[in-house]
């Protein structure tokens, strides 16, 4: 069973790498959804014996939220805002993948340094840290607003897995709180993206900075 959980962790890391190199927005959304689903299944694999009913129900909620509702919202936002099909990275894909690998090396080093309770699945901490970093990577090096939402979701996945390492049986309270935040965030940003695109015909964050008074030098006039 634990070999299976380990393989799942590897799968999650591979999805991080895939997110770093995927150029298509829709497959990015799908990857994030898939990662959420896999992460949702993980607590059922990591525990001992048969999972509790409560855990199963919780996993079901998470999977439906991350696997169905979020991608649906995001796809809708993408279509309505006319965001185009590509993610438009600011750095090249090889650089992204090398950064991602470096992040994994750093997080495995960090994972061995953090004073954490012994996780019963190897690599759960490095994988979660690497996932969080991938989220940051998506937020910082991609041009579009929608990839920033995706980045937040990836970070949430990472935090979820991290929570799993800390409290194998009881990740729910923390998780529920974060999930709520993220849900609201996705919702708000979905609406925001939609409205911004209606006003400005694009959702390029670089151009949003044009809105700032300070950039134009009009500040204080």
């Amino acid at each position: 069973m634990h070999t299976f959980a380990e393989l799942t962790i590897v799968f999650i890391i591979l999805m991080d790498l895939a997110l770093a190199v995927t150029g298509s927005l829709s497959s990015c959304i799908r990857l994030v959804a898939l990662q959420g689903v896999v992460a949702g299944v993980l607590p059922l694999l990591a525990g001992h014996g048969a999972p509790h009913l409560r855990a199963v129900a919780f996993a079901a909620v998470i999977i439906s939220l991350k696997g169905v509702i979020f991608p649906w919202l995001l796809m809708r936002a993408r279509d309505r805002s006319g965001a185009g099909k590509d993610v438009e990275p600011l750095i090249s894909y090889p650089a992204s993948i090398m950064l991602c690998l470096g992040a994994f090396i750093a997080s495995s080093w960090l994972g061995s340094r953090l004073p954490l309770p012994e996780a019963n699945v190897a690599w759960i901490v490095p994988a979660s840290l690497a996932t969080i970093f991938t989220g940051f990577l998506l937020i910082t090096t991609r041009r579009k607003a929608i990839t920033q939402v995706l980045g937040y979701l990836v970070i949430e996945n990472g935090i979820y897995i991290f929570g799993l390492a800390l409290f194998v049986e009881q990740p729910m309270m923390v998780e529920l709180a974060i999930l709520l935040d993220v849900f609201v965030a996705v919702f708000v940003m979905g609406i925001a993206i939609f409205h911004i695109s209606r006003e400005f015909d694009h959702i390029d964050t670089a151009e949003l900075s044009e809105l700032s008074d300070w950039r134009r030098g009009e500040y204080g006039k």
């Binding site: 790498l17 993948i97 991602c100 690998l101 994994f104 190897a122």
Partner: peptide
């Protein structure tokens, strides 16, 4: 580079 990433991941896994 993807192949390289696979190899690197395998090595990191094994080293850790």
């Amino acid at each position: 580079i993807t192949a390289f990433a696979f190899s690197a991941l395998a090595l990191i896994f094994q080293m850790g």
